[in-house]
Amino acid sequence: MLALDVRLEVGMEPVKGKVYRPALGLMFDDKVITAFSNLWRCLGNADFSTAVMDVLDAVCPTDSCGVLVFYTQRKPLSLLHRFNPVDRKVSADIYSTGPYALDPQYRLFLAGCPTGAYWLRDVAPDDFYSSEYYETFYSKTGVADSVDVLWRIDEDSALVFFMQRNIHSSEFTAADLTALNMVLPILSEALAKHYQLAAALPLANPDDKTHQQVECTLSHFASSLLTKRERDVLLYMLRGYSSALTAEKLNTSDGTVKIHRKNIYRKLEIGSQAELFSLFINCIPFARPEENTDPLQLYQQSHQPLRT
């Protein structure tokens, strides 16, 4: 076996003579060597995204993985999905129907994060793992942990290689992130070369209005019933922020946020975050971006009983 030797800076007491630092090695076993060899063969070819995913999976094994394109003005586009859900009742395409808007890693992309490997537990809000988004979306596929390897194309788009482990597997570790960051510079150069040789990335269907409806729902959901500050609190609730962290973000007190939460439940006539999340997702198809109206109003009107 060959070993890639990467020297890490560590805090050490000053000593006379040479200072020897411990080395962290990524073992280039047969699987890793085969994956890298195939990567070079696929440069400029249609199978290149699959080859990149094979390298990442060889370096850091996963249960499910795939490739997305993130856009700022369109919904994510799926290029590859090796989907192995624990519960097969859920479709692999559910992410792109609206839940992506609440994904911490997608929000990080929108904030302009650079190329890098991002571990969900490092970027998620403090209450994310007990949030209804996590329970309703992630638990349906059995995903327990994920890492996104994001490669910036430009300000408005990025390739995202998502890596997932399910509830029956071990979670990712800091060592996994270190290994991914070790190969990321090599993959970045290969990706840049590939897109010099290959055609441009396919674009999402320009006639698909899902993203506009999702953005409209984020902007106007419950606006006819809630105050602006209550809507601010509501959006943090949907994304998995605790009352304390929401208060910090909004520069107010924890007690004030809890009062807003109670008012939100009362005005929307719901009793739990599960109902709130379900209501938000159900409203997306009713959003009318060109009108900037509250999709909740339209949703409620469509569900009013017919008069006889």
Score class of each variant (00 low, 15 high):
3 A>Y: 07
18 K>F: 13
21 R>F: 07
21 R>T: 14
27 M>H: 03
32 V>L: 15
35 A>Y: 06
37 S>W: 02
47 D>C: 09
51 A>S: 08
54 D>E: 15
54 D>F: 02
63 D>Q: 15
64 S>L: 06
70 F>N: 10
75 K>S: 11
80 L>S: 13
83 F>C: 11
91 S>T: 10
104 P>Q: 03
105 Q>N: 12
106 Y>H: 13
107 R>T: 07
108 L>F: 02
109 F>M: 06
119 W>Q: 08
120 L>W: 05
122 D>P: 03
127 D>M: 00
131 S>Q: 05
133 Y>T: 04
137 F>W: 05
139 S>M: 11
142 G>F: 03
143 V>D: 08
146 S>M: 13
157 S>A: 12
172 F>W: 10
173 T>E: 09
177 L>M: 15
190 A>F: 12
191 L>G: 03
192 A>Y: 13
204 A>K: 11
206 P>H: 02
209 K>H: 05
222 A>I: 01
223 S>T: 01
231 R>P: 00
233 V>I: 09
235 L>S: 00
237 M>H: 02
244 A>S: 10
255 G>D: 11
257 V>K: 07
259 I>E: 14
271 G>Q: 04
274 A>K: 15
274 A>Y: 13
276 L>F: 03
279 L>P: 08
285 P>G: 01
286 F>E: 05
286 F>C: 06
287 A>T: 01
299 Y>A: 09
302 S>K: 12
302 S>M: 13
308 T>I: 15
